[in-house]
């Protein structure tokens, strides 16, 4: 028996919004530790890794490890039927071929349930190596989303250049060129507004705007985003989901042939 409950459906809606543009379908691996999802996007250039810890749920029970292949378009249709404040419970029997989403209104007067067919998906089991990154930047998630949106008007790629002074985002194309520099903040009242840089050595890497923009769909989940970069290895864009887990996106840098 698997059962996981969150007191507000809005969290699950935001998680789904953060992955559904990159993945058509995905396997949710459930264990007593929580829910894990790991999948390459359709074009095999980026990887999504989602962790929702069991202790972050309002109720969590998973008697036996369970892999649930879900069509994210169908899941999205179902979650649209929930109000943000509804309690959401996901339930499945062991070896089931369906999962049930149950939504309950705050006053307990409306209860709805939606059963969705599960899919058998070919899963790639990929290992994520431990990596010491040359630069780790933490910055407001909204600011990062804004920068990616603004720069994608100028070119298909963004160059991220990080030194101990700050981080620079650049793009160029037919219109002209654009540069946005962020300095490390010296002092801020609110931690979520800080820009911090941990640098071992400077890096300058180029990434596809299209993917960075897709990653910023996770912005509503977190105040801050963390960018971890080293030469010739995938960038990690991490959003921490308060008290519940995290979502990490990996994207290979573009390399001149």
């Amino acid at each position: 028996m698997f059962e996981a409950r969150l007191n507000a459906a809005t969290t699950l809606k935001k998680v789904l919004d953060a992955i559904k543009d990159l993945l058509n379908e995905a396997t949710f691996d459930c264990s007593d530790a929580g829910i894990q999802l790991q999948a390459m996007d359709n074009s095999h250039v980026s990887l999504v890794s989602l962790t929702l810890r069991s202790d972050g749920f309002d109720k969590f029970r998973c008697d036996r490890n369970l892999s649930m292949g879900m069509n994210l378009g169908s899941m999205s249709k179902i979650l649209k039927c929930a109000n943000n404040e509804d309690t959401v419970t996901m339930k499945a029997q062991d070896n089931a071929d369906t999962v049930t989403f149950m939504f309950e209104s705050q006053n307990h007067e409306k209860v709805s349930d939606y059963e969705m067919k599960l899919m058998n998906l070919d899963q790639e089991h990929l290992g994520i190596p431990e990596t010491d990154y040359s630069c780790v930047v933490r910055m407001p998630a909204m600011e990062f989303a804004r920068i990616c949106r603004d720069l994608s008007q100028f070119g298909e790629s963004v160059i991220i250049c990080c030194t101990k002074e700050g981080v620079k985002f650049s793009a160029s194309g037919d219109v002209g060129s654009a540069n946005i520099k962020l300095a490390q903040t010296s002092s801020v009242d609110k931690e979520e507004e800080a820009v911090t840089i941990e640098m071992q050595e400077p890096v300058s890497l180029t990434f596809a705007c299209r993917y960075l923009n897709a990653f910023t769909k996770a912005t509503p989940l977190s105040n801050q985003v963390q960018l971890s970069m080293s030469a010739d290895v995938p960038l990690v864009v991490e959003y921490r989901i308060p008290d519940l887990g995290h979502i990490r996106y990996y994207l290979a840098p573009k390399i001149e042939e």
Binding site: M40, S43, H44, V45, S46, L47, E124, H125, L126, G127, I128, P129, A208, D232, V233, P234, Y250, A252, P253, K254, I255, E257
Partner: peptide
């Protein structure tokens, strides 16, 4: 594609 190759090399198949 080079990007796909980088991803493949980095995430070792288990």
């Amino acid at each position: 594609q080079l990007e796909q190759l980088i991803m493949k090399n980095y995430f070792l198949h288990q």
